Amino acid sequence: MRTTVNKTIIKRLGNLLSVKALVTLTLTAVFACMAAAGSISQDFMTVYTVVIAFYFGTQSQKVQDAVEGGNNGGG
Rank of each mutant, 00 (worst) to 15 (best):
R2C: 06
T4Q: 15
T4M: 12
V5L: 14
N6R: 13
K7P: 00
K7E: 15
T8G: 13
T8Y: 09
I9W: 04
I9E: 10
I9M: 10
I9P: 00
I10T: 13
I10N: 11
K11S: 12
K11F: 13
K11H: 13
N15H: 10
N15P: 00
L16E: 12
L16K: 04
L17T: 08
L17F: 13
S18W: 00
V19Q: 12
V19R: 13
K20A: 14
K20L: 08
K20V: 02
L22S: 06
V23H: 08
V23F: 12
V23Q: 10
V23A: 14
T24N: 04
L25M: 14
L25E: 10
L25S: 15
L25V: 11
L25G: 14
T26C: 15
L27G: 00
L27A: 01
T28M: 14
T28V: 10
A29R: 02
A29S: 11
A29Y: 03
V30P: 01
V30E: 08
F31Q: 01
F31N: 02
A32K: 04
A32S: 07
C33V: 08
C33Q: 04
C33E: 03
A36G: 04
A37E: 09
G38R: 03
S39V: 10
S39W: 06
I40T: 07
I40F: 04
I40L: 15
S41L: 06
S41Q: 07
Q42V: 08
Q42G: 02
D43R: 08
D43C: 09
F44D: 00
T46K: 10
T46C: 13
T46S: 15
V47W: 04
V47P: 01
V47Y: 05
Y48E: 02
Y48W: 14
T49Y: 03
V50F: 08
V51E: 00
I52G: 00
A53Y: 01
A53H: 02
F54C: 15
F54S: 14
Y55S: 05
Y55T: 05
Y55R: 02
Y55F: 15
Y55A: 06
F56N: 14
F56M: 14
G57E: 09
G57N: 07
G57R: 04
T58P: 00
Q59T: 02
S60C: 13
S60Q: 08
Q61V: 04
V63I: 13
V63M: 13
Q64G: 02
Q64I: 07
Q64F: 13
D65T: 03
D65R: 09
V67W: 09
V67E: 10
E68P: 05
G70Y: 03
N72K: 13
N72A: 12
G73P: 00
G75W: 03
G75H: 05
